[in-house]
Amino acid sequence: MQKFTLKINGQSHEVEADPQMPLLWVLRDRLGMTGSKFGCGIGVCGACTVRMDGSVTRSCVFPVAACTDRDIRTIEGLSEDISHPVQQAWIAEQVPQCGYCQSGMIMAAVALLEETPEPTDAQIDATMTNLCRCGTYPRVRKAIHRAARMMAQA
């Protein structure tokens, strides 16, 4: 066990954990931040997606020891009141079904739109590799385009 100081959503958190403990479980079981989900544990499904220094990161395979001095962003920090354009677009397009993959899906979409403010369908295809068992994919696509328009007008 070691002590780590993590900067999550702009706030500093002290945690004690094994250096190999993945960020996901530090968030969920040490800090009680359960917005990021466990889906596969091997970095494939993307339910655990967070952003680290802006990059999309699968937190279920990312050790806490590599997280210090990084800017970690989770779904909890996106907005206080669901006002982020991506969240608003998600509601407007009625994207989620069971909802379980959606935190990770939204974090991936936010990162995509910051990198590529007006993504093409091909860019969305290439970037959005998060898995959704309910089949919300067509609405995810629509919501990303809608969020892009909202952000361009803002």
């Binding site: 917005g35 989770t74 996106l78 669901i82 969240q87 998600w90 994207v95 959606q102």
Partner: peptide
Amino acid sequence: EIPLHASG
């Protein structure tokens, strides 16, 4: 249920 899911 959608706002709940969209906010995690």
